[in-house]
Design a binder for these strands. Structure first.
Lengths: 240, 240
DNA sequence: CGATCTGTTGACGGCAGTCAAGTCAAGTGG
DNA sequence: CCACTTGACTTGACTGCCGTCAACAGATCG
């Protein structure tokens, strides 16, 4: 029993997101307790992790991969309302259902916590709740930033904004990039039609605007889903 | 001194939003402490309450009136990213600045709490932090709902969605509406160009789509900013 | 090799934006 | 009291960006 706990603690202790996501709010001792309720789950691209308005029985930290949050209208029109990367948190606390679909955009590994036990721990560890609040506030900020994009930006500005956002997120979390090195390469993660659903466009328009940016030299592509940015300021200028 | 406290408590105790907003999370005894740090401020339509990225020194509960949260691009394009009605909470906790403008859309009265004292109280009263978290999560949900509108809905659907949202919010909070009464009358609060900035349209398009809905009988106007809805289901159908 | 999925590019049309004129109500000042 | 101004709103004519429809290219896989 003790051995198992130690094993589980060590799994958490050496977890790549130990000091990034909500887990960072916990001490090693608290993490020990936390690790006992955590289980891992894996998903393939396209898998539905959570269905809209289905009662959810777990929360999760994104361990690896990318998760899309989407909403759909009755006639099938779809909008991506959030993109979760490690070490983001997945799930709607203090509510029995969540109003989005969560879909794996890439291979995904989650670290899951049962619904009721996690909410109890939120009450026990005030630092955890604090962290969740701060993360939710940050998410609200970036969601509103995206509202400006959807409401007011042109197609070209939208695509440029997406590239800029991905580049910034990449450099913030995976900041193991050696300075003075050659061009940083970023991952797009999404297919053209997923990008379209994120930007409020059609996939043809996304294609065209990517071509425009590529031909003007603002971004350089290697394959269809990897790109680099010679001049981030120029990209930011276009993104508005 | 004691007299003043009693006076202040009584002001909170009989406050119209005492049992609606975050204050509802407090006991009468806690409210007493709370009332000692609270001050009231008034604003006229068009007044800027908070400027984007300006360091904020207070939080506030909306007592009366309507507050717009907006963001602008360098060339002046504007997007309303949130609409706050009583008893909503204004301010970005645990961050020295907030990335939006807060502007009074109508006459507004705020109940304000100093920045540092309020954050201390959040730590002292866990129910308060809990309430703030839940309110933030709800705000995130409705913001994402609005992303679908901005990204995927037509002009007519957007205007219909706004009417529906206002009707629902009105009936939820001011539910002193006598049943079996004649048509409920709702307030639009915003000018045509403010609606446009909320819906990601131009004010001419907003005008035209309001005319369409009015002529089809789905909504009835008295003046330019008051309307009633004969059939809410029909409106919801159009809103998508 | 064909089948399928993903991405690219062209031609055309429509919805909403742009530009502009006009209505209406409220306020201001002579 | 009336001319004038101002702000909010409405409506029309035209334009253009992006959506729709369609053909095609490349990659992956059985």
């Amino acid at each position: 029993m003790q051995a198992v706990e130690n094993h589980k603690l060590s799994r958490c202790a050496c977890c790549v997101i130990r000091h990034k996501g909500i887990c960072d709010a916990l001490t090693d001792a608290e993490l020990m307790q936390f690790s006992q309720i955590a289980t891992h789950r894996s998903y393939e691209p396209g898998d539905i992790i959570l269905s809209s308005d289905e009662k959810t029985d777990f929360f999760a930290a994104i361990h690896t991969g990318v998760v899309k949050l989407t909403k759909i209208l009755i006639d099938g029109r779809q909008q991506v309302v959030g993109l979760l990367l490690p070490p983001d948190f997945l799930g709607r606390a203090f509510s029995k259902s969540n109003p989005y679909f969560a879909e794996a955009a890439t291979k995904v590994e989650l670290c899951c916590f049962p619904h009721d036990k996690f909410e109890h721990m939120l009450d026990d560890f005030s630092q955890l709740k604090q962290r969740l609040l701060e993360q939710t506030l940050d998410e609200l900020d970036s969601t509103r930033e995206w509202m400006v994009l959807l409401g007011r930006k042109t197609a070209e500005e939208r695509v440029a904004s997406l590239f800029l956002m991905l580049a910034n997120r990449w450099m913030k979390t995976d900041c193991a990039h050696q300075s003075g090195q050659q061009q940083e390469v970023f991952e797009l993660y999404l297919k053209r039609d997923e990008i379209a659903d994120f930007l409020g466009l059609t996939y043809e328009t996304v294609c065209r605007q990517i071509s425009v940016l590529r031909k003007s030299g603002v971004v350089q592509f290697s394959g269809t889903r990897r790109f680099s940015v010679p001049n981030l300021d120029a990209l930011a200028e276009i993104a508005g």
